[in-house]
Amino acid sequence: MQDKTPLTPRFSYKSDRLKPLRAFCQTVRLGSVSRAAEALFVSQPAITLQLQALEREMGVGLFERSGRRLTPTREGQLLYELAQPLVEGLDGLESVFKDKVAGLDAGELNIAANSSTILYLLPRIVEHFRAEHPDVRLTLHNAITADGTDLLRADAVDLAVGSMMDVPADLSYAPIYRFEPLLITPPDHPLATKTKLELADISRYGLILPPKRQITYRLVDLVFQQHRVPYTVALEVGGWEVIKQYVAMGMGVSIVSSICLTDADRGRLATRSLKEWFPSRSYGVIVRKGKYLSPQARAFVELIQPDLFTRRDYDDSGHSER
Rank of each mutant, 00 (worst) to 15 (best):
W277D: 11
L222D: 11
G267E: 10
R268P: 01
D155K: 09
I202C: 05
G250F: 05
Q225T: 14
D221I: 01
G267F: 05
R272S: 11
L269C: 01
Y177S: 13
M164D: 03
Y177T: 06
Y177V: 11
L151Q: 09
V253H: 08
V247H: 09
L152V: 09
K196T: 15
P190V: 04
E198S: 10
V253M: 04
A154S: 12
E276P: 00
P230A: 07
M165F: 11
R228E: 14
R204V: 04
E276N: 12
Q225S: 13
S273F: 02
I176D: 12
E276W: 01
P175W: 02
I202R: 04
P187E: 07
P168G: 05
R153W: 08
V256A: 06
R268F: 00
Y217M: 03
P168V: 04
I176L: 15
A200P: 01
C260P: 00
D166E: 13
L191F: 13
I176M: 08
M249C: 11
L274M: 13
I243L: 04
A270D: 04
L183T: 08
E198V: 04
I176T: 09
P190C: 08
D221W: 05
P168D: 03
A264R: 13
T232Y: 00
A234Y: 02
D221E: 13
D166C: 03
L207E: 08
S203E: 10
S254G: 02
V237S: 05
P210D: 13
V237C: 00
R213N: 14
L222Q: 11
T195E: 14
P211K: 11
Y231M: 14
K196I: 15
E180N: 00
P186I: 12
R204T: 06
Y231Q: 09
T195P: 04
